[in-house]
């Protein structure tokens, strides 16, 4: 465990010792803030219209604002995560520090988990900034906190899935650009894989819907924790880390 934390700490310090961490957190906050602003403006107009129309009751802020906001936040993930993961292994291989890690008395699992937790920590820092926006909602409105919490849980799980996959792709190459491009393409494919579901047969449709990373996020954004989705994300993470481990191991044999 100490070894895992040592690696995770090294990764996190690596992000924030260079501009990488600050740029990622800062621009994530900028994009999230923009989405927040547009959605709030839209929500405001909708509420106004409803009040003018004389209909009773008010709009559900969770459904109308928070859920779409979190969905938008996942799009940023799609674009930003390849940048986080593309260097994790590629950089270590290029600078020769892989040799230090692999000749130290730590297991491959500890290295991989450390790197994964480090990247997840950076993502958590990015998400932490958005708590401010949610705070604004609580000051001026009365949203329910539980669907927001599950939404964040969903974001973390989805992020973890992408990070583990990105880690694996990074472990395949010593070239960061190659790692970044492949990661982005695979992410995007997983994103849009169910767009064709209406043209294919019902079986294929079910399969594609199950594979799609976004499909599983919807329920979290609505405030539902379904074990089906939990299992999907957790096994996705496990598979990504397992593949990374195999890739690192096979790299040794190939020299």
């Amino acid at each position: 465990m100490r070894n895992i934390l040592a690696i995770a700490g090294k990764e996190l310090r690596g992000y924030f010792a260079s501009p990488i961490g600050y740029v990622l957190v800062g621009f994530y906050a900028l994009l999230f803030g923009w989405f927040f602003y547009t959605l709030v403006a839209f929500f405001e107009r909708q509420s106004m219209q409803m009040a003018m129309g004389g209909q009773g009751g008010s709009l559900n802020i969770n459904q109308m604002l928070v859920a779409p906001l979190l969905m938008n936040a996942t799009v940023i993930m799609l674009l930003v995560f390849p940048l986080i993961t593309m260097r994790t292994y590629a950089e270590e291989k290029r600078s020769g520090t892989m040799e230090l890690l692999l000749t130290s008395p730590i297991t491959d699992w500890q290295i991989i988990l450390g790197k994964f937790i480090g990247a997840l920590g950076l993502y958590a820092a990015m998400l932490a900034v958005t708590v401010v926006h949610m705070g604004v909602l609580f000051v001026f409105g009365t949203p329910e906190w539980k669907p927001i919490a599950t939404g964040y849980l969903g974001l973390l799980l989805m992020g973890g899935s992408f990070l583990s996959l990105g880690l694996f792709i990074s472990s395949l190459t010593r070239n960061q650009i190659v790692a970044g491009m492949i990661t982005f393409s695979v992410f995007l494919l997983l994103w849009v894989i169910n767009w064709v579901s209406s043209f294919v047969g019902p079986t294929a449709q079910a399969v594609l819907n199950t594979l799609s990373v976004t499909e599983h996020f919807d329920d979290f954004a609505k405030g539902i924790i379904d074990t089906k989705h939990l299992v999907y994300y957790l096994s996705f993470i496990a598979m990504g880390l397992f593949l990374t481990m195999k890739s690192v191991d096979s790299e040794r044999w190939r020299g």
């Binding site: 310090r13 600078s95 520090t97 230090l100 130290s104």
Partner: peptide, 17 residues
């Protein structure tokens, strides 16, 4: 590995540390 110290051909340094 606990009993081995290794200096590779290129010192394995982290540039940002």
């Amino acid at each position: 590995k606990r009993r081995t110290g290794y200096l590779p051909e290129v010192p394995p340094l982290y540039p940002d540390m």
